[in-house]
Design a protein around this nucleic acid. Sequence first.
DNA 1: TGTACATCAGTGAACGCGCGTTCACTGATGTAC
DNA 2: TGTACATCAGTGAACGCGCGTTCACTGATGTAC
Lengths: 196, 196
Amino acid sequence: MEDGYHHGALREALVGAALELLREEQPLSLRAVARRAGVSHAAPYHHFADRRALVGAVAREGLRGLRSAVLAGAEGEEDPGRQLLAAGVGYVRFALENRPLFRLMFSAELANREDLPELREAHRELRSALLEMAGRRLGPDTEADEVGFWVLRGWSSVHGLANLILDNQVPGVTTVEEAERLTRRMLLAGERAMAR
Amino acid sequence: MEDGYHHGALREALVGAALELLREEQPLSLRAVARRAGVSHAAPYHHFADRRALVGAVAREGLRGLRSAVLAGAEGEEDPGRQLLAAGVGYVRFALENRPLFRLMFSAELANREDLPELREAHRELRSALLEMAGRRLGPDTEADEVGFWVLRGWSSVHGLANLILDNQVPGVTTVEEAERLTRRMLLAGERAMAR
DNA sequence: TGTACATCAGTGAACGCGCGTTCACTGATGTAC
DNA sequence: TGTACATCAGTGAACGCGCGTTCACTGATGTAC
């Protein structure tokens, strides 16, 4: 279990190495990941069926992180409306602070997830968190359909804004702080329109 | 100029071949593009500095198409509010009908466009079209900042929705028709909230 | 109208590279007795 | 406590592949005189 021939927790180490490479904006090849983990390039095959499975595991980790970021943002607030606002800000912050990972999570490569049940589960958990928060905001008598639609509206806004910023489509917004301020402003405008 | 040794319009043919490959969800390698255009894989270098320049030209073509789709949607309407609605629907339709191209246009590869002035110009033209439409909707006395913020709100919603659909994050929405209906519903809800 | 010649836009071979995956192997680990 | 042995999780060599890019080349085109 110590160091030496048998690694002990290579699976986790590989995912960690992949996250490291992403942070450095390096391409996520199976060989590069193995290299970074300090292991031969054939070793990953004892833990992942193929490159795709590894990428899926990395994306899953990313989704969990995104969910945490969203929930962490909301935790500091009492009022459900403010919770949602903070959640949106947390979402955008995560995207900005984990650009390549965020892109990977929503990449064409993983648009079809039928073969990656664990990744699907992570997506479901993120979605549940959003639905739960929106449910608190809209009240217990709100129909599920309406809550779903409401989540989709908010999610689209925030997801779109995050993507536009990542893609340098929002002139003058590059830092995390600027992005957070803009997100808050945007969500506040939406809330205000709703409340009126 | 006829057929034969000199192609005559290889640059355009290469971009066309690339668009064809994207439509088939094939990877956009320089060699594959040349192959599809029926030309040796060294030929593109007489028209593009490198692979990146070719990809940039393809994205530019895509952006022009997106702008056209947005304007075409709006053209059928008189009321500025309805124009914006139709523009949004056109945006999402374009994304759904040109999935790989749309992804390429907003990919990490092209997030930095400093070396691709023609692509930047295409982005500017799309942005101008959006600003102009929003300006008509908000009236001539609206401050430029406000118009810009308003565009960003709408664009984020529509761009986010398009991306979420492309990524199979919106259960039950896969066809273009379903996506259009949902977009309309979403934008209507936004308009309604604003009008109230 | 003909000819010499520069320029242009192709070709095909070659370069070095990193990739995903497979394979036979071997050292380490854990368990049955 | 020791030993035999199955299983596990690594290694390193090898496979075939497609890639971007460069190069010397050559055929076609257009122009000057």
